[in-house]
Design a protein around this nucleic acid. Structure first.
Length: 547
DNA sequence: ATGACGTTGAATAC
DNA sequence: GTATTCAACGTCAT
């Protein structure tokens, strides 16, 4: 404490801190911009969270409890690049290591460095809201000025919800109708930042290398081809936007999920997730391309449409209690998912016996990224399509392994794909055989991610169990020995799933649990006039018809 | 009540 | 490549 007070004397009153969490960039960074204005000293801080970085030996793949190695690597690369960007402006990134709690570490620095103004980008995730409240409460008690601009998303989710009468819009179209045009990015040009202040006795850590974190032997794991950081983000964006024809004619559903050497999308999602790229700047740059071409596609399928989907899920997730759970979630269908650890593990580890499904899950584990439609295939397979396993189980696997894993978007898409919310046409099931085949009849994608199948003739590569034994022998891949037999029969399993979904939907209707929150109370009240609660009870007491 | 609509299904026919 | 059929969901405007 005494040392700390000594530090405050030299730091001066006009010290500001910019706290980085997401938003790992210099461009379009309102928090950084506000911190530098009128401050003699600026402390750019990132707090390393041991729960995010500490190796978890019990995890099903290398990494920590929260993140697979691919995303940890991406984060570290992003931090290195942020540090380099700040150094170009005469500053640097101050890395603090939390003992076990991020707010404690940050608050100690706020106090010890005598910070007068704290700036950080607003974050709407429940975890972040709880974390940030502890920091802002502490700052308020010390009389520290706090500035928390919205700059992660195009729009302010709270504002959209307010405009919609206090409830989040639950369809994309109604979201669009409210949203309008997003604010312009703040692209202030400046050549230097205020110097960092005295950091007293704080140990200033360099950005650790992935190898130093003790994840064991990760050399065997394929390395994700996507490098983190703002520099890489801007380079990747400019490369994508160079092909104006491609940008203006982009239609997401027409992309090829099996393309991996040159992905069918921009692969900017991980950079948006960490804020290495500003969504507003990206949006603005796409608009510029549109202005230079005769015509362009439109939301929901267009490139800007994808950014709007991101904001849609941020908004709904912000305005929905228990968005990341089935129970207690008003917009989520209540479905009696099956519990089957063996089938779940087969799915998670890419051992379902369906090469298309397994290749996608292996790409996920190794790269931390796969095409959107590939995600659809495996999510459908796990939940309503084949295995009838809870979407929360799949959500957890994606959340840990994806380099672009984003709380709002990941949960939103799992709700969507499992037909629990937003999308309800549960008869539309992705075939684990024919869906991939129509894009990649030769199975190059499968051969790349599942080397044991690389010599399987293309006639059998999507269904190796149908190959005659002589063919399997020639391909040096015996099904049941070198590659698993299918864990379920898709024809039978998907038929059963349809039936279960139909029953679950019927039961939800009778229970009055409609998605938009207005239960069938109103219609019931109208029809029963005298408030005959008994009929209501009897209705809800016999929801499960057995046929 | 009714009909149009919904980012991305599969199988089949032309 | 595009259209049709399959069987049929919830939401929203009328």
């Amino acid at each position: 404490m005494d040392a700390a007070t000594a530090v405050t004397a030299t730091a001066g009153a006009a010290a500001a801190m910019v706290w980085f969490r997401k938003g790992l960039r210099v461009h379009d960074n309102p928090a950084l911009d506000a911190a530098r204005r009128g401050a003699a000293r600026v402390y750019p801080v990132f707090v390393l969270d041991p729960r995010y970085l500490r190796p978890d030996p019990a995890a099903h793949s290398p990494g920590s409890a929260r993140a697979g190695v691919a995303r940890v690597r991406f984060l570290l690369e992003s931090l290195s690049d942020l540090d380099a960007g700040l150094r170009r402006l005469g500053s640097r990134l101050l890395l603090l290591r939390a003992r076990d709690d991020v707010p404690d570490a940050l608050c100690a620095a706020l106090r010890d460095w005598n910070i007068g103004k704290l700036c950080f980008e607003a974050d709407t995730e429940p975890y972040a809201l709880a974390r940030d409240k502890r920091v802002t409460d502490f700052a308020a008690a010390l009389g520290i000025e706090v500035f928390t601009p919205v700059s992660h998303t195009l729009f302010d989710p709270a504002e959209i919800i307010e405009k919609n009468g206090g409830r989040p819009p639950l369809t994309y179209q109604s979201f669009l109708a409210i949203a309008g045009e997003p604010p312009k990015p703040v692209m202030a040009e400046y050549s230097e930042l205020p110097l960092i202040g005295d950091t007293g006795e704080y140990e200033l850590l360099p950005v650790p290398k992935l190898e130093e974190l003790g994840y064991g032997d990760i050399s065997q794991e394929n390395i994700s081809p996507f490098r983190g950081g703002e520099t890489e983000a801007l380079k990747r964006m400019r490369e994508s936007l160079q092909d104006k024809e491609w940008v203006s004619m982009f239609e997401k559903p027409k992309g090829d999920p099996s393309a991996f050497l040159k992905p069918a999308t921009t692969v900017l999602s991980p950079y948006l997730k960490f804020g290495c790229l500003s969504s507003r700047y990206f949006y603005h740059c796409i608009q510029e391309v549109y202005r230079s071409t005769k015509k362009h596609t439109k939301p929901p399928v267009s490139l800007t449409g994808q950014l709007l989907w991101r904001d849609f899920f941020y908004t709904v997730s912000f305005g929905t209690l228990s968005f990341d759970h089935m129970k207690g979630n008003k917009i989520c269908k209540q479905i009696p998912w099956r519990q089957n650890e063996e089938l779940f593990v087969a799915w998670r580890d890419g051992r379902t016996g369906y090469p298309w499904i397994d290749a996608i899950m292996i790409q996920l584990r190794k790269w931390g990224w796969m095409h959107h439609l590939a995600r659809h295939s495996v999510a459908c397979f796990l939940t309503r399509g084949d295995l009838f396993i809870h979407w929360e189980k799949g959500r957890d696997v994606f959340e840990r392994l994806l380099i672009d894993s984003d709380w709002a978007i990941n949960n939103g898409n799992w709700l969507w794909l499992s037909c629990s919310s937003f999308f309800y046409q549960y008869h539309r099931i992705y075939s684990p055989i024919s869906f991939g085949k129509k894009y990649d009849p030769n199975g190059d994608y499968i051969r790349h991610f599942i080397p044991v199948l690389k010599d399987m003739p293309k006639e059998y590569i999507y269904e190796p169990w149908t190959a005659p034994l002589s063919v399997q022998e020639k391909a040096r891949c015996i099904v049941g020995r070198d590659y698993p037999k299918p864990v379920v029969d898709h024809e039978a399993a998907s038929k059963e799933c349809r039936k279960r979904m139909g029953e679950a939907y019927a039961s939800n209707r009778l229970g009055g649990n409609t998605v938009n929150g207005k239960t069938s109370e109103s219609s019931r009240r109208k029809s029963s006039d005298g408030g005959q609660d008994a009929s209501d009870l009897s209705k809800s007491k016999q929801p499960k018809r057995r046929s």
